[in-house]
Write a protein that binds this DNA or RNA. Structure first.
Lengths: 182, 182
DNA sequence: CGATTTAAAGACCAATCGGTCTATATATAA
DNA sequence: TTATATATAGACCGATTGGTCTTTAAATCG
């Protein structure tokens, strides 16, 4: 499964051909269809896995027991890592899928919208806790700031396709965070 | 040409088949190949047109004769328009291309990187003028703020695929701008 | 061991891909 | 008018697409 996810991640949905998936999963044609149905079903499974991984990681990084601002820093540091150099080049399965299939595939639409909503909620929660702790900059409202952060990190993934340096991505993240925390 | 651009824009590179392009351009197969070469060449032309349009629009919106902050507001208002509702659903040819082809197509790579660089430079210039005019918030550095804004607007395009309301997009943009201007 | 289930290999299918080419019709020019 | 250039429609090409099916080999089990 993760193998198949890796192929879709690297190549996108349309550019991934069956032989690519067979090579990656080391399954025969018949076995793959028996196990997953068709290409589209396998793709949805891969996408679900990707979303689950991302949200699980966020729960760890932004965990309620941690200092919220430090959680946000960790969360953003992960994006720095994933959007610079070769990792940046590889891109993001979710963003690529949103751009390639959203609006033309209802199954995908639900997953994309659900992911952004969940992500925004988790960020908003961390920001609320930061506000309660008095570590948020004056005038920052958690819910709108969360929407800003979601847009920002997804934009990082887009710009990351040009493989910026780690330092450049980190500096951008730092400059953004400076506007929102004390 | 714009017709072909529209098809690539709506469907992406791989999902656009020759019959789609023939229908859109109202050209015969032979004429299309005589005029543009192959599919890839036609795509690059469409992408160039898209990039030129976007940068030209930015020059108008952020024009040096205008109040820089007002220029930025106009610029961002354009993104609100393009990333909400049906416009949001349609997406962005440049972002879709970055996610679909960047890293696997050198001709595309150059155009994507060039676009982001040019865009960032234009935003940085407007922010510099705002800073000189004293309308920038304290501690905001034009070049890093420009990188933030570029990421933010590209992220808006990604999230825009879920077709948010105009008001929601506008509120997010307003909240961001509030952190950067006086 | 032999019997049975499971999975691999790959032939095979219709449909479609991007691309070429020929024949026909439509202008344009003399 | 006739001659010529231009663009059309669409047949045609090999390659590849996602998907099915049959044959054979490898496990598993009694």
């Amino acid at each position: 499964m993760e193998r198949a996810m890796g192929v879709f991640w690297s190549r996108g949905y349309h550019a991934t051909a069956l032989p690519d998936l067979l090579r990656a999963t080391k399954l025969s044609r018949g076995s793959l269809y028996a196990a997953f149905g068709d290409k589209h079903s396998l793709f949805l499974r891969a996408l679900d896995r990707y979303v689950t991984d991302a949200l699980t990681r966020m729960d760890i990084e932004l965990g309620a027991r941690r200092e919220p601002v430090e959680g946000l820093r960790t969360y953003l540091a992960g994006y720095v890592e994933r959007t610079s150099g070769a990792n940046g080049r590889r891109g993001c399965l979710l963003v690529a899928t949103a751009m390639e299939l959203a609006g033309r595939d209802a199954d995908v639409d639900r997953r994309i919208a659900g992911f952004f909503k969940a992500m925004e909620a988790k960020v908003a929660d961390a920001l609320s806790r930061a506000k309660a702790a008095g570590t948020l900059a004056d005038g920052v409202e958690p819910s709108s700031a969360a929407r800003i952060l979601v847009c920002f990190v997804e934009g990082l993934r887009v710009v990351g396709k040009t493989a910026p340096t780690r330092n450049a991505s980190q500096a951008t993240v730092d400059a953004l965070l400076d506007r929102f925390i004390k």
